[in-house]
Amino acid sequence: MTEGRFEGRVAVVTGGAAGFGRAVGERLLADGARVVLVDRDAEALTATAAELAERGPVRAVRADVSQEAEVAGYVAEAVREFGRIDAFFNNAGIEGRMAPITELSVEDFDRVIAVNLRGGFLGLREVLRVMKEQGGGSIVNTASMAGIRGSAIFSPYVASKHGVIGLTRCAALEGAPYGIRVNTIAPGHIDTRMARDLTVQVDPDDPQGAYERAVARIPLARYGTAEEVANLATWLLSDEASYVSGATHLIDGALNA
């Protein structure tokens, strides 16, 4: 951690109530940023914002990232509250239902795409408009190792995360003339609520066994932590990564090496 590297800057974090979002929000506050946390879970968001308020200026905005008006609303609220947006962690996502393609409904597919891909697009669009006007900024989108590989019985999520990586590349090219950097993080197995829920879907009768089998495949022999993801995401958002844009950064304990 570099003390004060976000001093005087404004950051927006979606999916900010828990997991990667909370960890990144906490790190940004510790490094001097003013932070807007966005989540659709109002109760969890309020509790997280109250806890993190001891570390610095934080504003909680309840929004569903799949809804165009609500995305425009959280971006407008950030600008109204703090005057600008210097860093954007475009992170909100869901895992959806795991099943073979032949057993998925259109509703299963659309639900995941709406949050993970359309929500990512909407956030990018609105924040890029602000950053172009102000003359720069940095964006980190959350994909997954599922964005660079296939995975049986997980097709909506895999498709959505491949899409996030594609959006990142396009946004990096469009943002570069305005001093805007856009990157993607691609986490592997990280110890979060989503990861724990996925082990239940993989093996409802023995989720602990599913977890242990996953660990056995990881060269570093453990799940990562949300704090380790925050280390990467906040570095990419900072000026320390000033020549890094358009890239996808795996954080997976060498699983995809």
Results as ranks from 00 to 15, higher is better:
D239V: 02
P219M: 08
T248L: 03
V244T: 04
E227Q: 03
A226P: 00
A210G: 09
N231A: 05
A214P: 04
V202P: 13
E227F: 09
A214V: 02
N256W: 13
L250W: 01
L255I: 15
A216W: 11
D206A: 08
L250F: 02
D203S: 12
Y223W: 09
V244W: 07
T225W: 10
A247T: 00
A210F: 09
R222K: 06
E212K: 11
A210V: 05
G209H: 12
Y211V: 03
R213T: 02
A210M: 09
G246M: 13
L255K: 09
V244N: 05
L232H: 04
Q208H: 10
S245Q: 02
L250V: 01
G253I: 13
G224R: 03
E227D: 07
G246E: 10
P219E: 04
P207H: 13
L237R: 09
V215M: 05
A210N: 13
T225K: 02
R217L: 01
A221D: 00
D205Y: 11
L232S: 13
E212N: 13
N231K: 08
A226M: 06
G209S: 13
G246A: 08
D205T: 12
S238G: 11
L255T: 05
A230P: 02
S238M: 06
N256E: 14
T248R: 10
G253C: 14
A210K: 09
G224I: 01
D206C: 12
A216L: 10
N231V: 01
A254W: 00
L255R: 10
Y243H: 14
V244E: 09
N231Y: 14
A216V: 11
P219L: 00
N256M: 15
S242Q: 06
P207F: 09
V215E: 06
A221N: 06
D205P: 14
G209M: 10
L232I: 08
A241F: 07
L250H: 12
L250G: 02
I218N: 07
E228H: 01
A226S: 10
D203G: 10
T234N: 01
S245N: 15
D252R: 09
A214T: 08
T225F: 11
